[in-house]
Design a protein around this nucleic acid. Structure first.
Lengths: 182, 182
DNA sequence: AACACGAAGTAGACAGCGTCTACAAAAGTT
DNA sequence: AACTTTTGTAGACGCTGTCTACTTCGTGTT
């Protein structure tokens, strides 16, 4: 495996094991067994390396969706929604990195391509799930995606709970899906 | 105005003018006209200073809600929803800081108090807006809040748009409110 | 009035970070 | 075989947060 790929893999492992705050260029280099300057031979800077990692994250998100069990369009949509939230809860550090503008470069071509593919495929699922009462399915998809995204984000933040109330992410997701599809 | 308060104010200004990446302890000190070590006389570290700034952010969020025009419970709820998204779009850097676990300390008492007050008051609005079909209003509140939060976050991220589709935040918000209240 | 003492501010140091540059080694190309 | 491009290393620079020693200053006690 070439050094470039090893750096991406090492960074990805470091990310899931130590969290977003630990993915430093020098730390990745050390973990990969190269000098601290080596990564700059393969990436223009930290943002480009982390963008490659985030691209893998979006790709996995897309893959999970493709492996979903078939069924009615509506079932497929709810499965996709669960899949999104599950991904965020199972890989919180990766999920955080994927939306950290200060760490990655959203204009990186590969990243931009796969992240908009995530949205586009989701919009297809929404469109297939039924009539939206005249509103553009892509608009509904954007709104629903945002709802899922916020759910995952607030849960990871620890903020879904009020003073004396701590819902599970599953129950909150059920309410969300009920609002949109019920 | 004491130095402590000046540091918070300066940090807040620096935040809105230069963005989250620019709020460095040394930069704040310089902008406030004190030495780089002075802030540590008033705060245990960067996290405590930024937590104070974020606390002001949550407080303003709460204030905006209290100044909302009266009306039917449902009108008041939709106004509160708009207020949340408007705040995020008008003060993006503050909004980002408020949810950046790595920069602030969510267990800071003042911060924890005001942030859960934000949720609690929102839950009251949801409960007043009508029957939720037997589900706990706080659970609906959590789900709706997450939807608003995700909307703001994804919009600021620049990701609400697919390849050839760019909805306005207002239109997406309208769809969200329609799903929950329509 | 003299003193002591704690709070507040300063300046310097340290390790860690991202990035740049100069240099060495290795791999390909002609 | 000679030359060029790629890949890796080591050191430096300026930045960061934080720690420590030192100074300054206001206040309260004796």
């Amino acid at each position: 495996m070439g050094t470039r790929q090893r750096l991406i893999t090492t960074a990805s492992e470091l990310l899931t094991e130590e969290g977003v705050g630990a993915v430093t260029l020098r730390g990745i280099a050390k973990a990969a067994g190269v000098s601290h300057g080596a990564p700059l031979r393969h990436f223009s800077g930290r943002a480009e390396l982390l963008s490659a990692v985030a691209t893998q994250g979006f790709t996995e998100l897309l893959d999970r969706r493709k492996r979903l069990p078939g069924g009615s369009p509506r079932e497929r949509l709810t499965a996709a929604c669960h899949s999104y939230v599950d991904f965020a809860l199972q890989k919180p550090a990766m999920f955080e990195l994927m939306f950290r503008r200060d760490l990655i470069d959203p204009d990186e071509p590969a990243l931009a391509a796969v992240s908009s593919a995530v949205f586009d495929e989701f919009a297809v699922l929404v469109a297939a799930a039924g009539d939206q009462g005249g509103t553009d399915p892509r608009l509904v998809a954007a709104s629903l995606w945002a709802a899922l995204h916020g759910l995952a984000q607030l849960w990871l933040w620890g903020g879904l709970a009020g003073a004396s109330f701590a819902p599970s992410p599953e129950s909150a997701l059920a309410v969300t899906l009920d609002a949109y599809l019920g």
